[in-house]
Structure formats: structure tokens, C-alpha cells
Computed example of a mutant assay.
Amino acid sequence: MPSGGELSILTMDTSSNIIISISDKGVGMNEEQLKRLGEPYYSTKENHL
């Protein structure tokens, strides 16, 4: 969220699960980024090596 925004992290503990919900009010992700969501070490940030 380069221009600011809101990030929300909510947690809920049930008798058998822990639920974590993460949301933001940013610009969103494109289709390619969504396909890779959950891959280890994946980042939407550009590589600045």
C-alpha cells in the first residue's frame, strides 16, 4: 500500500481451530500474483539486488 491504506488482522480461537483473517484496502493483486499466493518465498515486491 504505497500511498497508505488499512491492514486488518483478525484471529479467532474455536474449540478445534485457530482462524487468521488478513485483509487490506490496497490496490489488490493481479491474476499471476494470485496464482502464486502461498508459494514459499514468494513476494510481490520487485527484486532490487
Rank of each mutant, 00 (worst) to 15 (best):
M1V: 05
M1G: 05
P2W: 07
S3W: 12
G4Y: 03
G5Q: 04
G5S: 01
G5R: 03
G5T: 03
E6C: 00
E6M: 01
E6I: 01
E6A: 00
L7P: 02
L7A: 02
L7Q: 01
S8E: 11
I9W: 03
I9N: 00
L10Q: 07
L10E: 13
L10F: 01
L10S: 04
T11R: 01
T11N: 02
M12T: 02
M12N: 10
M12W: 05
M12K: 12
T14W: 02
S15R: 08
S15L: 06
S16R: 10
S16N: 12
S16A: 10
S16M: 05
N17F: 04
N17S: 13
N17W: 05
I18D: 07
I18R: 11
I18E: 07
I18Q: 12
I18T: 14
I18Y: 08
I19D: 05
I19F: 04
I19K: 04
I19C: 00
I20H: 02
S21N: 14
S21W: 00
S21V: 04
S21Q: 14
S21L: 08
I22D: 06
I22G: 00
S23N: 10
S23V: 09
S23A: 15
D24M: 03
D24V: 02
K25R: 15
K25H: 06
K25T: 15
G26D: 10
G26S: 15
M29C: 06
M29P: 00
M29D: 12
N30V: 09
N30S: 14
E31R: 08
E32S: 14
Q33D: 12
Q33H: 13
Q33V: 05
L34E: 15
L34I: 10
K35F: 09
K35M: 11
K35T: 13
R36Q: 14
R36N: 15
R36A: 08
R36K: 15
L37W: 09
G38D: 14
G38K: 12
E39N: 09
E39V: 05
E39C: 04
E39A: 06
E39S: 11
E39P: 00
E39Y: 12
E39M: 12
P40G: 07
P40C: 14
P40K: 12
P40N: 12
Y41M: 07
S43G: 05
T44R: 11
T44N: 11
K45T: 06
K45L: 15
K45W: 13
E46C: 03
E46M: 09
E46D: 08
N47G: 03
N47W: 10
H48L: 13
H48I: 12
L49H: 12
L49K: 14
